[in-house]
């Protein structure tokens, strides 16, 4: 059985008080609870403070380009459907630079667990608006306040009928760990949008704000009910639900490339008889 210690302990580049610390702990708890050893998982990330998270874990990782983590994760999963792939990055990387890939991943229902650090601000570039920033949020780049409508990733994922859509908050680490473990167990695309305060650059959506404007979903919500999920997911500024918003059993995209013995195609020899047959079509 893997333990928390197996995943190591590293010096980080995060500011004191950053929500990422609790998030990292929740990820470790979820991996242990899911009985996953460090070598049994591939983390794929983009660029940003959130995207550095896999560097602070003992695991296989591919730390790619800003916005482009999901396609790398998708290629990895298609090539080896048996490999457990977790994508982890921030709201800017995932919903801004990588927005098209986010839409496509949800539509495909590719079997990736997507952990998105959502602090509603750009941290690594020091405080510009992110796609999820609230309207009116003032920054040096948006001195008149954010004008655009914030991107509602959770509702978009529900609309695209992603396999699993949840929302967590680093202020409730155990709840978050449980949510991540459920997402990991889900066979299709599993989004967990994670509220995470940025004490350095987002003074508006601070720890107290997230605490006061969220609530825990109870048994009254049925995540299999798409219409109820769409309605719940519309909350952005107050009374924001935490927990499993939506779930369905749409087949995972990579299942079409599964092999009979579960071993990826690339472990097998090129079959010359099959190749000869393919070439014969051109005679």
């Amino acid at each position: 059985m893997p333990t928390i210690d197996d995943f190591g302990s590293f010096e980080t580049a995060w500011c004191p008080g950053c929500g990422n610390f609790q998030l990292l702990e929740a990820v470790k708890q979820a991996l242990v609870a899911s009985n996953i050893a460090p070598h049994e998982v591939l983390f794929v990330s983009g660029i940003g403070q959130a995207a550095k998270a896999p560097q602070y874990l003992n695991c296989n990782y591919f730390n790619g380009l800003h916005g482009r983590g999901l396609p790398v994760a998708t290629g990895a999963k298609l090539a080896n459907p048996a490999l457990r792939v977790i994508y982890e990055s921030g709201d800017g990387c995932t919903y801004g630079e990588g927005g098209n890939h986010f839409l496509a991943a949800a539509r495909r229902n590719i079997g990736i667990t997507a952990l998105v650090h959502d602090n509603r601000v750009y941290g690594l570039t020091k405080g510009q608006a992110s796609p999820t920033s609230q309207q009116g949020f003032e920054t040096k780049a948006q001195p008149h306040g954010v004008f655009s409508q914030p991107f509602n990733a959770v509702q978009v994922a529900v609309a695209m009928r992603a396999g699993f859509v949840g929302r967590g908050f680093t202020g409730h680490t155990d709840h978050l760990a449980d949510l991540i473990a459920q997402a990991i167990a889900h066979p299709g695309f599993a989004l967990v949008d994670i509220f995470q305060p940025c004490p350095s650059f987002n003074k508006l959506n601070n720890y107290a704000w997230f605490k006061n404007n969220t609530y825990m979903l109870g048994d009254e919500h049925n995540p299999d009910d798409w219409e109820a999920a769409m309605k719940l997911a519309s909350a952005m500024d107050e009374q924001i639900p935490l927990g499993v918003i939506f779930r369905n059993d749409r087949p995972a995209f990579e299942s079409q490339f599964a092999t009979a013995d579960g071993k990826p195609h690339f472990t097998k020899q090129v079959e010359t008889a099959a190749l000869r047959e393919v070439m014969g079509k051109y005679a």
């Binding site: 591939l42 794929v44 591919f62 790619g64 380009l65 482009r68 999901l70 396609p71 790398v72 994760a73 998708t74 290629g75 990895a76 999963k77 298609l78 090539a79 080896n80 490999l83 098209n100 890939h101 839409l103 496509a104 990826p264 195609h265 690339f266 472990t267």
Partner: peptide, 19 residues
């Protein structure tokens, strides 16, 4: 893929994994 950026990144992910 959804665009060429995704296409090249997918191929890199697949190759990193072994294909």
């Amino acid at each position: 893929a959804e665009d060429e950026i995704a296409a090249i990144n997918m191929a890199i992910g697949a190759s990193f994994t072994g294909a």
